[in-house]
Amino acid sequence: MDIRVQAEPFDAGAELNRFAARRGDSGAVVTFSGLVRDDGGLHHMEIEHYPGMTAKALTEIAERAQARWDLRDVLVIHRHGKLRPGEQIMMVATASAHRAAAFAAADFLMDYLKSRAPFWKKEVTGDGAEWVAAKDTDEAALDRW
């Protein structure tokens, strides 16, 4: 398991290749990348987090995924600080023997990262700044699991 919380950018392609090479017994690797989306007028995004809790919460979420699916490995990278449109915010990768577990676990990780990892996004535009509100659908998504 590899959990990283960082301000620095990362290279998702290089991370995928490194992750895929870590275990020879994985037949399937699934990755998801989240990017800063510009819906129009976004200057940048500020991501605040809770330093004492973040890595612990991400590790607990990854451990839940590992307990539920037969995973060979899990990677979570999540950035904080100032990010511009198009930049990578985060990525998850899951490795398993077959694809079904890798897809399901990646989906699970994303649902939990959305509403159980202590990050808060603020969008800064030319008109000012606004905190992104959590969606009811994000919370409801957890009921799937």
Binding site: M53, K114, F119, K121, A134
Partner: peptide, 26 residues
Amino acid sequence: DQELTDFDAPLGTAREVAFFPPMTGG
């Protein structure tokens, strides 16, 4: 103490309490 809980949770020997809006990770 860095674990999500409810508002009716006892504080006991807690050292740290954090308040925040619903999280928006991912």
